[in-house]
């Protein structure tokens, strides 16, 4: 499903002419198989979020290759990668990243609009997904009118609605209380079992990491466990 081959990355910091190089990842290689739930764990600043951003295509690695579903995504340009994300990857973010001026329904519908689906198909799919995440009666609510747990469910519904084979989750429970956190983790497990969706979860929380089939631990930009 995902192949990371000898990926290294660094950031250039400071003003032009006086830039310093900050190494973040060093020669990272691992593989994630279809249907797995894999947690990438590590302390703050270990480089785990950078790794997720590289796999998402939000930033490009300085060295190495990344393959997703047989496509060498590191060779794709920005436009091609956007189309690839729309077709193959769903996202769950720590602070939900919902568009505040859109209702829950409209936020979930957004990937389908971007795909160019007709209104009828969109309506059916969106309503089904809203039901699936248990927010059937909250479709007309704006994100500000929903609790943190409900917002995260909307975020999950948006990731699910276009049936992607892979969902990338960046600290998905980071903004939730412990009850809502365990509810969400159960839901992720359920989705994995029922739909066979591959999950790659970035977390620093051991409990979250425990739901995975395996955990890759990153420390100081290097993989120390789980490859």
């Amino acid at each position: 499903m995902i192949k990371v081959k000898h990926v290294s990355h660094h950031f250039e910091m400071g003003k032009k002419g006086r830039k310093t190089v900050l190494p973040v990842l060093h020669d990272l290689s691992f593989e994630i198989h279809k249907g797995e739930i894999v947690a990438i764990a590590g302390k703050s600043g270990s480089g785990k979020s950078t790794l997720l951003n590289l796999i998402s295509g939000f930033i490009r690695p300085v060295e190495g290759e990344i393959w997703i579903e047989g496509t060498k995504v590191t060779d794709l340009n920005e436009s091609q990668f956007a189309d690839f994300r729309l077709e193959h990857i769903g996202f769950i973010f720590q602070n939900f990243q919902l568009i505040p001026s859109m209702t829950a329904y409209e936020n979930i519908e957004l990937p389908l609009i971007l795909k160019g689906l007709d209104v009828k198909a969109r309506k059916k799919k969106t309503e089904e997904t809203l039901e699936k995440v248990g927010l059937g009666q909250f479709g007309d609510h704006y994100p500000s009118e929903l609790s943190g747990g409900q917002q995260q469910r909307v975020s999950i519904a948006r990731a699910l609605v276009s049936n992607p084979p892979l969902i990338l989750a960046d600290e998905p429970t980071g903004s939730l209380d412990s009850d809502t956190e365990s509810e969400l983790l159960d839901f992720i497990k359920q989705l994995n079992e029922e739909l066979g969706i591959t999950f790659l979860i970035i977390t620093h929380d051991e409990e979250v990491a425990s739901i995975g089939n395996r955990t890759i631990v990153v420390k100081d930009g290097q993989m120390v466990q789980g490859g």
Binding site: S56, E78, A82, L86, I89
Partner: peptide, 14 residues
């Protein structure tokens, strides 16, 4: 909003 749209797969051309 543009950032979110781009993240979930909106093409820059769109």
């Amino acid at each position: 909003d543009i950032g979110i749209m781009k993240a979930i797969g909106a093409n820059p051309k769109t």
